[in-house]
């Protein structure tokens, strides 16, 4: 303590105190706030009653008390647990604005709460179920087949490496950098917003695993060529070659052809000599009439 006290007036003490305060706040924040659903969920202990209560408290204002839909939001009867899981775990629901495209944002619900609501919706209308952990496991998946399916059905919206892409009228297909395997699976299964539905009948659960494995491996693998430049193709390459390549080379060309200057110390000496000799004769021009 005395050690700290003896140095309390040093300039660095202020910075140290600030840093300590930031660290403390960060730790408190991390401990006290809830984070969204992360791991593959288990279907045990879903409490339908809890889910119904949560639904009526949060979702029914747009979706109706019986989830029958209103003019603001569609009916959720038949939407299934998978749709609920996807929309809520990615934070898209509760929607922040009616009618707009919903973007991924942090969710304020816990994993358990989401599962409960999902179980409730499943119970009132059925629909696609949340996949089991085994169903979204990427172990032993055929990424070659996944690459074929991805490029034929997904890449045209999401980009060849899942970097996202534009759709019409201001919508866009999001990047796939943050989606968990379960979220990818449920998205394929339920076709959220503008995304088409890829039911198990055409893309089997095994094929879905292959696609998920392909996506996960693509986004985690290193870029052996250096920085990825966004993985959007030649657009960024063109920007780099003009701004980076040509720009830097033009500066170097200016250096190569710049006129030679006297070294600064030689110039200084010359100026000093010039100043001495000009001291007597240089002020002759004051008369200007």
């Amino acid at each position: 303590m005395g050690w700290i006290n003896a140095r309390r007036r040093r300039p660095v003490a202020g910075y140290a105190a600030l840093l300590l305060g930031l660290v403390v706040v960060a730790l408190l924040y991390g401990a006290l706030t809830r984070t969204g659903a992360q791991a593959a969920p288990t279907t045990a202990q879903q409490n339908i009653a809890n889910g119904q209560a949560l639904f009526q408290a949060t979702c029914s204002s747009c979706h109706g008390l019986e989830a029958q839909g209103t003019d603001q939001a569609p009916s959720l009867i038949g939407a299934g647990a998978a749709a609920v899981y996807f929309q809520m775990s990615t934070g898209r629901m509760p929607a922040k604005e009616v009618g707009a495209e919903n973007e991924r944002k942090p969710t304020t619900f816990t994993e358990q709460e989401i599962l409960d609501i999902a179980a409730y919706i499943q119970s009132i209308g059925g629909g696609p179920q949340i996949p089991t952990p085994a169903q979204v496991s990427t172990a032993g998946a055929d990424t070659a087949l996944g690459s074929q399916l991805f490029s034929a059905n997904c890449a045209q919206c999401h980009g060849f490496a899942g970097a996202g892409g534009a759709l019409t009228y201001g919508k866009d297909a999001p990047a796939m950098t943050q989606a968990t395997p379960t979220q990818i699976y449920t998205a394929m299964l339920t076709g959220p917003e503008a995304m088409p539905v890829f039911s198990d009948g055409v893309i089997s659960p095994q094929a879905k695993r292959d696609i998920i494995a392909y996506i996960v491996q693509t986004r985690t693998e290193a870029n052996p060529g250096g920085l990825s430049l966004g993985r959007t193709g030649p657009i960024t390459e063109g920007l780099v070659i003009f701004l980076g390549g040509m720009g830097v080379l033009v500066l170097i060309a200016m250096w190569i052809t710049a006129k030679r200057r006297e070294p600064w110390d030689v110039a200084q000496q010359e100026n000093a000599r010039a100043g001495q000799s000009a001291g007597t004769s240089g002020t002759s021009g004051t008369e200007h009439r």
Binding site: S147, S151, A152, Q156, G159, A163, G165, G225, G226, L229
Partner: peptide
């Protein structure tokens, strides 16, 4: 060394059945 160009392993082999968004030729 530092900037990837033409990462063909990400594009995949050509098939006339598939296409990606952001399909542009070189600048």
């Amino acid at each position: 060394t530092f900037a990837t160009i033409n990462p063909i392993w990400l594009y995949g082999p050509y098939t006339p059945v598939a296409i990606s968004s952001a399909s542009q030729p070189d600048w």
